[in-house]
Simulated assay, not measured.
Amino acid sequence: MFFKIFWILRGIIYRPFFGKFKLPSYIGKPVFIGNFKRIFIGKRVRIFPGARIEVIGDNASITFEENISVGQNLHITSGANLIIGKNTTIAEGVMITDIDHDYKDINRHILEQKYILKETKIGENCFIGYGTVIQAGTILGRQCIVGANAVVRGHFPDYSVIVGIPARIIKRYDEESKIWRKTDKKGKFIDER
């Protein structure tokens, strides 16, 4: 618990550089933070050490809403407006981006080709498991659970359990029957017998 005092002090020191940094949030020693002014951190955001948080461009942003816990070694990159919803937990070693690289010109290195930006958003009260990769163009609904090491791209409805490479829905909460039910990979309920 003593080390968190240093993280709070670091947050206070960094606070004027961020677009927003509400207390009592804290941040462990990051690896890199790029474009501080375009990063917005709400109340009670806890970011553990080793984070790489970067915003590319003056019109892009990353928003961490309130009460978010982020494990060690997060890598998050935005070239658009990436949002992490409130009450979300992100485990260790997770990568989140809203940027793809074009690759069509075979005479140019892939990193020299244009960015392809796709809306990416993590809904409220989600859990992102260890080692997950959230790719550009992913929209997670409210209270989605993403299993460890999943590679996620696409739109996923509220209350989905998402696993695998490529990620697919295996279960969703049925609001009518008030139970979690198995689904096919597109998220349609399967009759359980």
Rank of each mutant, 00 (worst) to 15 (best):
K182E: 03
I169C: 08
K186W: 06
T183W: 06
A150R: 12
G187F: 03
V94R: 08
R153S: 09
G85L: 10
H101E: 07
G141F: 03
Y130Q: 01
I134Y: 00
E176R: 13
E176I: 14
I170D: 08
R168W: 07
I110R: 03
F189W: 06
D102S: 14
A91Q: 11
C126E: 00
T120W: 09
G141L: 08
G137W: 00
G154Y: 02
V163C: 04
L117M: 12
N87E: 12
Q113N: 08
T97M: 06
I169H: 08
I128M: 04
I162K: 03
I106N: 13
S160K: 09
H101C: 04
V151E: 04
R181K: 15
W180H: 09
K188G: 07
A91H: 11
I84K: 01
G129F: 02
K182T: 08
I134T: 02
G141W: 06
G85D: 07
T183K: 04
N125M: 00
Q143L: 08
I179W: 01
A136W: 00
R142H: 15
I169L: 05
I84F: 03
I96P: 02
Y159E: 08
E119N: 15
I99F: 09
S160H: 02
I170Y: 06
F127C: 01
K186C: 05
V151T: 10
S177H: 11
A136L: 01
E176D: 13
D105C: 13
I76V: 10
P157Y: 11
S177T: 15
Q143H: 13
E175Y: 02
E176A: 10
I83G: 02
D100H: 11
Y159H: 12
V151C: 10
T120Q: 10
G79F: 01
G137D: 02
L117K: 14
V152W: 00
Y115V: 05
Q135R: 07
I96T: 10
I96V: 15
I165D: 05
E175Q: 12
H109E: 14
H109Q: 11
S78A: 13
I106G: 10
C144L: 13
E124F: 02
G187I: 00
Q135K: 07
A136P: 04
A148E: 07
K182S: 12
I96L: 13
D102H: 12
S160R: 07
K104S: 15
D102Q: 13
A148K: 07
D158M: 08
D158E: 06
F127G: 04
I122Y: 03
G154R: 02
T89L: 10
D98L: 11
K171C: 13
Q143F: 03
E175W: 07
T77N: 09
G123N: 13
Y115H: 15
K185F: 05
N107P: 03
S160Y: 09
G187Q: 03
H101Q: 08
K104L: 15
V151P: 03
I110C: 05
K182V: 04
I110H: 07
G85W: 01
S160P: 03
N107I: 06
N81R: 14
V133P: 00
V146W: 05
G147D: 11
E119R: 14
G154D: 11
H101T: 04
G147Q: 08
C126S: 10
I169E: 01
A167T: 04
I162Q: 06
G85Q: 06
